[in-house]
């Protein structure tokens, strides 16, 4: 009662656009409202007639709402969020584990690669060494064969030379005897032989 008329008066000057024509509906509305108010307690929010009803129904309805949220909705929402949080943590763990596995695989691969390289080097080195050794061996064998033949040849040359040298004395004696006889002398075999021997020594 104490607010509504005041408000109606405020409303009337508030309509400066068309003050004369707008005032009647506002006033009319207020009048009808006051006439039509069953409880005649004025401004509804301050009308204590309905306080018990509002308190009771608020208590009942809000109480039920609280119970419903507390028992059903909030545990469910909390569970949903918790499951998601767990799931995300779990997925992150899995991702971390898979990354570790991938890193380990890369490390293993690189280890294998390094091993293979080392092995290849070893094989190459062995092959090189073996080839070198074989080449050396065959060179030695060849050299040895050549040495043998050289020695044989030298022996043969020496024997031929000796044989030839041993015949030189006889040839010289015969030649000396023939020269002496051709000069009209008589060949003294013994003297010639000793002379040849003396010359050769």
């Amino acid at each position: 009662m104490f607010v509504a008329p005041a408000f109606a008066q405020e409303q009337a000057p508030g309509t400066h656009n068309e003050p004369l024509t707008n005032t009647p509906p506002a006033m009319e509305g207020t009048t009808v409202h006051e006439a039509g108010t069953e409880h005649s307690a004025g401004f509804p929010p301050f009308d204590s007639t309905f306080y018990p009803s509002q308190i009771l129904w608020l208590a009942i309805i809000f109480g039920l709402f609280y119970l419903f949220l507390n028992k059903v909705v909030l545990p469910r929402l909390g569970h949903i969020l918790e499951v998601r949080r767990d799931r995300i943590a779990q997925d992150l763990d899995t991702a971390a584990r898979m990354k570790e596995e991938a890193d380990a695989a890369v490390a293993a691969y690189e280890q294998d690669l390094a091993d293979a390289r080392a092995k290849a080097n070893v094989i190459g080195q062995e092959a090189r060494d073996r080839a070198k050794a074989e080449a050396e061996a065959s060179r030695r064998a060849t050299e040895a064969g050549l040495d043998t033949r050289l020695a044989e040849a030298e022996t043969r040359i020496a024997s031929i030379k000796n044989a030839a040298m041993s015949e030189v004395g006889a040839i010289a004696e015969e030649t000396a005897a023939a020269i002496v006889e051709a000069l009209g002398g008589r060949a003294d075999g013994a003297a010639i032989a000793s002379a040849v021997a003396a010359e050769r020594s």
Binding site: F7, P25, A26, E28, G29, V32, H33, P44
Partner: peptide, 10 residues
Amino acid sequence: AVANDPIHQF
């Protein structure tokens, strides 16, 4: 009748 009454809604 109450079309312009701003209090009626309460």
